[in-house]
Design a protein around this nucleic acid. Sequence first.
DNA 1: CTCGAAATGTGAATGCGTGAACAAGCCTAG
DNA 2: CTAGGCTTGTTCACGCATTCACATTTCGAG
Lengths: 213, 213
Amino acid sequence: MIRMGNSKNIPDIVIGRLPIYLRALNLLLAEQREYTSSHELGERLGISSAQIRKDLSHFGEFGKQGTGYNIAYLQEQIRQILHVDREWPMAVVGAGDLGRALVHYRGFVPRGFRVVCVFDNDPARIGERIAGLTVQPMSELASQIAAHRVQVAMIAVPLEAAQEVATQLVEAGVEAILNYAPITISVPDSVQVQYIDPVAHLQHMTYYLTPKT
Amino acid sequence: MIRMGNSKNIPDIVIGRLPIYLRALNLLLAEQREYTSSHELGERLGISSAQIRKDLSHFGEFGKQGTGYNIAYLQEQIRQILHVDREWPMAVVGAGDLGRALVHYRGFVPRGFRVVCVFDNDPARIGERIAGLTVQPMSELASQIAAHRVQVAMIAVPLEAAQEVATQLVEAGVEAILNYAPITISVPDSVQVQYIDPVAHLQHMTYYLTPKT
DNA sequence: CTCGAAATGTGAATGCGTGAACAAGCCTAG
DNA sequence: CTAGGCTTGTTCACGCATTCACATTTCGAG
């Protein structure tokens, strides 16, 4: 058995760690390294080596006993598992400060994503050019998403508008949403949703802090 | 026994959900609602009602049988638990697109945080004014953080610089770091660290997607 | 005043994820 | 060629988190 089926029911928490492993492998490659071990990876990431080995074993046998993992090979395997051995076109909704920062961000392309269209409902912003893209009105959303075969979108609008935008995105065929608005949105089960809320992280940390002032 | 001690060893994962509950309570308050139930909260957040009740029970008894939770009261209790019944001054390191977006962000103050200083090492950016703040050189970091009693910082620099910045922040006395650079940083155990990596979230979702093109 | 519906807080049970430990395999040195 | 050290993949046991289920309390209708 060279390769286990990847259609098995892998725990979602394991999937969530794969991008972290991928990040570490990118760095190791940049350091011109050729091999690494579960121990070294765990050391760098603050994760136990046993967990890393077990996580990877869900998808196949990528290492060699006594030697460890070939970095380039493992990186490529994880990229295939996560389907980022290609470039996903993305839509950004909201051209405020955050939306603009997302369009400008150079970190997407090297890791498998590219912003291909930006939308806003503010007439003052429509037509504005950001990093080579033109801000489009919401009325163009459905057609643009279809034209660019967009399956992934990011929501960068005020929280009052987030649910409505999410609904429109789903109707336009988007299957994965990264929501920056601090609100839990309601979408069909078939649509993937992830959240980024910096304040939630900050509040998580202040629990452990003693105010100085 | 009216109130349980909060010095007990509460699971970290429970702490991580409290900000989400707080978010939902803010919304309910904005809707002029007075009472809610664990069932309603769970409905809105996609969490089981039992989990919400059990999470809250770690800290005391905040609800009333038959009635549910008084929204304003529960909100205030959670704010106290998380220590956000005050305003935490924050430092931002990195005045690129992301750093600027963070300084402009209006969502911090209503939830207990305020950016009070911004740093960068690029001479072209130093002196620039962002939302009323002046970008300062890294050489000012230690003194400014001391002067403003800053305990919380956000790292918004390229990944190559992130570890060095983290080290400087810790030396300056920062106790909690929200790191936007896609790299696991090394700090003393006494320092809280949280990560925001949009690409990791995106890659997590594409695992479940079938490429269209 | 009484009854029923509703909702909490919690002990018990289930399920899942993590870490320890080991057999098996690989490489290098001598 | 052999021996020893290193590392993987996997099994097992433990512990933690989640869900179930219920006794208890509250409110409102009649």
